[in-house]
Design a protein around this nucleic acid. Structure first.
Lengths: 141, 141
DNA sequence: GGATAATTTGCAACTAAGTTGCACTAGAGT
DNA sequence: ACTCTAGTGCAACTTAGTTGCAAATTATCC
């Protein structure tokens, strides 16, 4: 995990960005928590590490990290923006309606076939998709 | 279409709710526009009909209409709440990233099989899902 | 048709997520 | 250590949505 951490900080440096405590902490946090996180969650995670960051800063850093390609933004259907390492494969989400926890899943089923059909039938050019399952996780049932 | 309109107003009355101009207009609007609409869109649609409704009222009416089962709420991945007649079959959405228009599609593929797999593998009880495709509609390409 | 009681509505004030401008601070290279 | 630019924090703002309360309107009963 520490390897990945270093690699991402290098990437940041190569993109001409400075290495600041907040950026370091954000990247470290993304490496340690593989789940997609909201800006608010990130803010409190930083606080736990003793870093009192401002929300403006977090939002701005997230934007930059997305641009560089270190993380990716996911718009969840529960109307929250979430962020996770973009190195991860494309996957879908299980959202627990009780405890709000989010799990990642990889479906073997491919939606490519569907997207081709949509092109034929609707002449709609699909660029990306979002698939989420809502329900109860094993703890909350 | 007028038939459906009357039927829904009857349903509203039977549920013990009063028939007001705003409710009448909302239901009429849902019958005439089959696409999922945001509260803001509904507000401007009412205005076009000469009904200057308040946003508070619209939000409250939407809540009631959802409870009665006349309409259903859909949380879109573009982080907008949208509403449509709940009588419609379950379907998925094509969201144009340029003009923001939303189309409905029915996939013949069923996700039930996937949901059963999720239950076996993750012990996650799926209650509902959301599948959206983002891209460019035929006009915007 | 008119009085009454309860529901519906509108207003204003509020919350939460996110954004913007500007002044201050701190990294990185010399 | 100095300097210049990038990064940060603050305050003020925006937008979607919510809440409490007073005023208006609906359905009902006579």
């Amino acid at each position: 995990m520490d390897r990945l951490n270093q690699k991402l900080i290098e990437k940041l440096k190569k993109s001409g960005e400075r290495i600041t405590p907040i950026r370091r902490a954000l990247i470290e946090n993304f490496c340690n928590h593989p789940k997609p996180q909201t800006p608010q969650e990130l803010l409190t995670n930083l606080e736990k590490k003793g870093l009192m960051a401002n929300k403006t800063t977090v939002y701005r850093q997230l934007e930059i990290l997305v641009q560089i390609g270190i993380i990716q933004e996911i718009n969840f259907s529960d109307r929250s923006k979430r962020y996770e390492l973009s190195s991860k494969d494309h996957h879908h989400h299980l959202v627990c309606q009780n405890c709000k926890k989010v799990e990642d899943i990889n479906l073997d089923n491919d939606l490519d076939r569907q997207e081709k059909k949509i092109w034929k039938k609707n002449h709609f050019k699909v660029l990306q998709h979002s698939l989420e399952f809502f329900g109860l996780c094993n703890r909350c049932q």
